[in-house]
């Protein structure tokens, strides 16, 4: 069974047909092995389980959901850092899952990733200059003086003094390190960047700096972002459209304001109502939809709808019928729930 593929429906995109990335039926299952001498597979973690969506050129598509629901795996499988178990990923019309070697390497230049942890993702023994220029050297793009000048211009672009080119990561604060990671990601002039929780590890007072930088760069360079996050307030600010994931599947996808003002999936409703708002007056009058229970294991997903163990409005069919498909209930608004429409 394959989920209905979302059609294009991004009211805020200028050219509705300009799809940069097309993901169809994407699956990534990690094997669970047992046995010491003879390893045999006893099961699988269904980290990403049949996911389909489009990303439109120049937009920021948000990917949200609870820890372990498969956001990072989706991002990495798109970039072919993990090879998918099934499905296709078309980048500018070419299917990445069927290309290899030199061709894949060339395509990868156009797609980059920024990681969550600016402390862990930078090699502590390399200077800022060599960190940022490494991708250029791997792809043998620039050399010598030209390379150095280019790296300096990248540092400037992300708001770092080029003077710091010979320093090491530990000499920088969290926000500055994240800027180094961004400069590195920009080095090869990518078109598409997966931002995997780029601000989660940063202080609140630094987050706005990095978000503003990402937005400025997007405008200046025409970048497209897949923005993975769990801070739903920040996602509302930065994203044009948002996809909500639960246990390896997309349960709802809609233009940002539509999703926040009119969430239709019971999980999205619970998720949004749980987000605290920094305003005592608002908090005082807020009604929360509390859901009980914890996220089930993706190695052993429930039978029927994935959300049926916690859903406050579940019905008999939710246990009996297969997982509901993602369908378009109004232009651009996709939901997977037996109760909707």
């Amino acid at each position: 069974m394959s989920a209905a593929a979302p059609k294009l429906g991004n009211p805020s995109a200028q050219n509705q047909n300009d799809v940069i990335l097309k993901v169809r039926g994407l699956k990534k299952h990690f094997p669970i092995n047992s046995g010491i001498v003879f390893q045999r597979q006893v099961g699988a973690v269904r980290a990403v389980d049949d996911v389909s969506f489009d990303v439109i050129r120049g937009e920021t598509l948000g990917l949200v959901g609870e820890s372990g629901c498969g956001k990072s795996t989706t991002g990495r499988t798109i970039l072919q850092l993990y090879r998918p178990t099934a499905g296709t990923v078309e980048f500018e019309g070419r299917d990445l899952t069927s290309v290899k070697g030199e061709e894949l390497r060339a395509l990868r230049r156009e797609m980059q990733i920024i990681f969550q942890d600016p402390f862990a993702s930078l090699n502590p023994r390399m200077t800022v200059g060599s960190i940022v220029s490494e991708p250029l050297q791997i792809h043998n793009v620039k050399r010598g003086k030209e390379l150095r000048e280019y790296v300096e211009s990248l540092l400037e672009k992300v708001g770092l003094n080029p003077f710091y080119i010979n320093r090491y990561p530990h000499e920088f604060s969290g926000g500055q390190r994240q800027r180094i990671g961004i400069a590195r990601a920009l080095a090869l002039n990518p078109k598409f960047i997966v931002c995997d929780e780029p601000i989660s590890a940063l202080d609140v007072s630094i987050q706005a700096q990095v978000v503003n930088l990402l937005e400025d760069l997007q405008e200046e360079l025409g970048l497209t972002y897949l923005f993975i996050a769990h801070d739903l307030s920040m996602v509302r600010h930065i994203c044009d459209r948002v996809a909500v994931m639960y246990l390896g599947k997309i349960v709802e996808l809609a233009p940002t304001d539509e999703l926040y003002d009119n969430p239709l999936h019971p999980y999205t409703q619970a998720l949004l109502s749980a987000v605290p708002v920094p305003d005592p007056m608002v908090e005082e009058n807020r009604q929360r939809i509390l859901i009980t229970g914890d996220l089930p294991s993706p190695a052993n997903p429930p039978k029927g709808c994935n959300f049926n163990t916690r859903c406050p409005v579940r019905m008999d069919v939710c246990f009996r019928d297969p997982d509901p498909e993602l369908i378009e209930v109004s232009p651009g608004h996709w939901v997977a729930c037996h109760r909707v429409p």
Partner: peptide, 29 residues
């Protein structure tokens, strides 16, 4: 001023999507 900076740099869930720049606190801790 730090409290004010914190409060104004936060995007809010109950505010619509607009691409206004966030008010940022310059510098580092």
């Amino acid at each position: 001023a730090y409290t004010l900076g914190l409060l104004t740099s936060l995007p809010r869930l109950d505010e619509g999507h607009n691409r206004q720049r966030l008010t940022q606190i310059e510098g580092s801790p």
